[in-house]
């Protein structure tokens, strides 16, 4: 349980051959987001780049501003380990395409400052900083963050790429003009209209939604690659997805006209993105295999609970944050027994 600030030894499997250093892990995950960014640009055009740029700027500037200029405790510059960059990219990818840039910037600032720096910086954060930023934005600007733009009609074409959404460019602290074309996300359609979205559209990402979450296929491929390279504990995404499929199958069997299919649940919303890129953050998830299973299954249960019976159509972000909070408790339960000592009390 002793945390080292700079070196994070992942003890995911018994046959781990090398310790993974933080900058290396960070750069691998950053590289793994590039295809997702590309998919986001394909469907939502330049807006995707603008928003990611804004949130990365917010995150990096905050990191730079609060980092002690000459510090003995932090031997290398924390700007260069890539964690701020990663937080910014992940945050940007969870925003809707029509979000104002200043809001994305603010999300980056909040995520890094109260999600990470306040707790002591890299490796000490209790919650996923990108999700802290997004949860703050969700609570602060509930309308803006649930206003979805449809994907481009001719994805990838030059004109749809360069057509910037006006709402991106709202002046700081001002309302963004409501874009003419808005639509409901697949989850919203299912929840309020009971109207399922064709699974193939979900699979290739041709739906409304947050920038990075729509294209299921890219996320699945990148997730598999990262799991093979042991960038994260494969048990976490697997247990999340299994749990969501299992828990959402029950109501679907009982009332198929009212509840979404398990496949629809898996492919829509931020579930895949959250399971692969957010929940797997090694700092905020349990380190033991048993803990990882409990952690993932609980996230899955909460996602189903919030999506089907909660007030919001999507619950992945809250599910992960809640289980981030419960991680210390899970670690106690899932701690391997030490010989000669009883189990620690709960």
């Amino acid at each position: 349980m002793i945390k080292k600030p700079m070196q994070l030894l992942l003890q995911t499997s018994p046959f781990l051959r090398r310790g993974i250093t933080t900058p290396r892990l960070m750069s691998e995950v950053v590289i793994a987001t590039i295809p997702v960014i590309f998919a986001a640009c394909w469907y939502f055009g330049l807006s995707a780049l603008l928003l990611i740029f804004a949130s990365v700027a917010g995150a990096m500037l905050t990191e730079w501003f609060f980092t002690p200029k000459k510090s003995s405790t932090q031997p290398s510059n924390s700007l260069l380990d890539g964690s701020g960059l990663l937080t910014g990219i992940l945050l940007g990818l969870t925003l809707p395409p029509g979000m104002a840039m200043w809001m994305a910037f603010l999300g980056g600032v909040v995520g890094i400052s109260i999600g990470k720096l306040v707790m002591g910086g890299l490796g000490q954060n209790m919650f996923n900083p990108a999700l802290v930023g997004r949860a703050f934005l969700q609570a602060a600007f509930p309308t803006a963050i649930t206003t979805w733009n449809p994907p481009a009609t001719s994805p990838g074409s030059l004109e749809s790429f360069t057509a910037i959404r006006e709402s991106n460019l709202a002046a700081p602290f001002m309302q963004s003009s409501t874009d003419a074309v808005t639509t409901a996300s697949p989850l919203g359609l299912m929840k309020f209209e009971h109207e399922p979205t064709p699974w193939f559209d979900l699979f290739i990402g041709n739906t409304a939604g947050s920038l990075g979450e729509t294209c299921a296929i890219v996320i699945i491929v990148m997730g598999v690659i990262m799991a093979i390279r042991r960038d994260f504990d494969w048990r976490i995404p697997v247990s999340i997805l299994l749990a969501v499929a299992a828990f959402s199958a029950i109501p679907w069997f009982i009332k198929p006209e009212l509840y979404p299919t398990p496949l629809g649940m898996l492919l829509s919303g931020g579930l895949l993105f959250g399971a692969v890129y957010m929940a797997t953050d090694p700092v905020t998830s349990p380190v033991t295999p048993k803990g990882a299973w409990i952690f993932g299954a609980s996230i899955g249960l909460l996602v189903v609970l919030i999506r089907l019976w909660g007030g919001l159509p999507e619950g992945v972000m809250y599910a992960i944050l809640l289980m981030n909070a419960a991680t210390p408790l899970i670690e106690r339960i899932a701690q391997p027994r030490v010989f000669g000592r009883g189990r620690s009390a709960v």
Binding site: I114, F136, A139, A140, F141, A170, F173, M174, S176
Partner: peptide, 23 residues
Amino acid sequence: IFGEHFEPWVIMALPPGGFLMLG
């Protein structure tokens, strides 16, 4: 005080905003 186009930070009126602001 900010004119009509100001986008309020709803979170500040909500419980988390109370905790964070006092923090």
